[in-house]
Amino acid sequence: MTGIIWTENILQALAAGLLVGTIYGLMCVGLALIFGVMRVINFAQGDFMMLGMYAAFYIFGALGVSAVFGTSAGPYVAAILAGPVLFCIGYLTHKVLISHVSGTRTAHLEGEGHYAQLILTLGIALILTNGAMLFFGSFLYSLQTPLSTSAWELGPFWGDYVSVFVNKARGISAAISLGVIAVLAWMIGNSRIGRALRASADNPTAAIYMGVNVDKSHRIAFALGVAITAVAGGLLATNYPFHPYVGLEYVIVMYAGVVLGGMGSIIGAFWGGMTIGLVQQMSTLILPTQLQNTAIFVFFLLIVFFRPQGFFGRVVERT
């Protein structure tokens, strides 16, 4: 009987880890896109995710998506629509603020603009958090859907025992996350914008000589990165209540995921996020639950110690 319970516990933790990890992965991809193309560490990424959650919430309720699509499909439509809204906000943020301390304008700045970038993105994070507190208040909200309280039961696999519950809301969120990553991967690999992004990332000077508008590519990368994380936020909000400070809870996960995957690697960031989800959920099988987050960072330190470049990072800096 103990073996059966253990089997069920392991399978359940694995399922929870995969579901949580996929969302973490999508969040990390957004951050990695910004870092990979622009080499800007965006400390405000968690707060853009928070804005994505509020955007999805208002699209779902106030803009009538819930009335048109219902409470089952509506939250996912709203989460996806939050992407274009945050794309515009990200585009404007880059144009008005970030572009002054990044890209082709950094030659005259100390440390190639990295100090200014850190301070600026931290400042944006503070403004967004406190602005949201003033504007939206301290109330908790979520995109309420009946799917978040029901599950697909897989099994029982062993007589009446060993069932795995897959939460419907998290399951659909995970599927949409994979879809968004697939579309992004296709876009970067095959589209004209994707080629411009890759050229701007690999060698901005050469890209300029070849007629690529590097500043515009950076702007698109920033906006796209913010939009992807916002979609992840919207998907998370179907299950997780949010407030203006929710970004702080996730920004560390995003950074850990990006570093685990290898700084600059977009697919690596996905696997980094996935690893964090799996470690967070599966560590409870052998460690006390209150050490869930400690387990993430012990694992993170081990990876940084044995493989400093991360899963998919390159050892040699790009030329």
Binding site: N9, A13, A15, T289, L291
Partner: peptide, 20 residues
């Protein structure tokens, strides 16, 4: 007897213990 650090990301491990 389970103790967790708030906020939780997911309650699955806790509820799985109760289910068992």
């Amino acid at each position: 007897d389970e103790t967790f650090t708030p906020p939780l990301a997911d309650a699955t491990p806790l509820v799985q213990r109760i289910r068992s």
